[in-house]
Amino acid sequence: MSVVFSRPRFRLEPYVEFAKVAMAKEATYRFDVFTNIASVLVRVYILRTVWVALYAHNAAPSELPLHAVITYSTIAMLMSLVMDIDQTRILRDSLHDGSIVLDFTKPMRVPLYFIANGTGEVLFHAVLMIPALALALFFVHIDVPSFGTLAVFLVSFLLGYSVGFCINFILNCTAFWTLEITAVQFIVTWITDLVGGELVPLVLFPAALQNVLVVLPFAAMFSTPLLIYVGHIPPAQYAGALGLQAFWLIALGAVSVVMWRLGARRLVSQGG
């Protein structure tokens, strides 16, 4: 008796299963999750205090009144619940311990496996944003924009998240060549924090610097969705803002594909 296998057709099912498993696994680190939410709330509280103090002693910038900047910071912290995850860490880990060799003996698209895993983790954290948001609404009294703005914000957030995902994937792909990538990753995280608009809105930077920073992919991750939320980017500029984000997503998506191909080619010629 012989079983004849035809050319495998693509099935989504295993990747959905991987995502589910990753989600369930995240849920088992419950302690982590609660400390995570707690730390976000603490940071929100501290930032609020800082902004209040700063605004009390300086002339408020016309672009961003106090309540807007507090809203901005709070939403930024909530976004970081899913943005700050090292989603494709498992790629780096399996290159480190060599288990990627076994991944390649299975009839699956290996990068999709890593992506599904990261997406599962993130989805779990995305669910956590809901209680965190409720607490933020209750304690910090953030602004809630119109339904239309909220919808555009969500699209922009999704685009920004995807840009961040690509950057993370590209960084973890460098593990194909060097296993010492923590330093690089640290620097990129630091740059993102600084010039992505997560901690300080880019509109508060000097105009010359601003013009450079807003076109960088880091701004696409945080600044763009946040400025849409607080209304600093008006509806007339939505198309341009989202377009720039989409551009970065496509560009970095292409880089991701190239990095993966080069890395995988190196792996199959050099061995694990």
Binding site: F5, R7, P8, P14, E17, F18, V21, K25, T28, D97, G98, S99, V101, L102, T105, K106, P107, M108
Partner: peptide, 28 residues
């Protein structure tokens, strides 16, 4: 296609998912 035809056991590494019970590894 080839992966579908073969089974592999490397004594030095495991293909099971570290955090999962066997039952769930098998289901995956």
């Amino acid at each position: 296609e080839n992966a579908q035809n073969i089974g592999v056991v490397f004594g030095q590494r495991s293909q099971l998912y570290w955090d999962l019970p066997l039952r769930e590894s098998f289901a995956l």
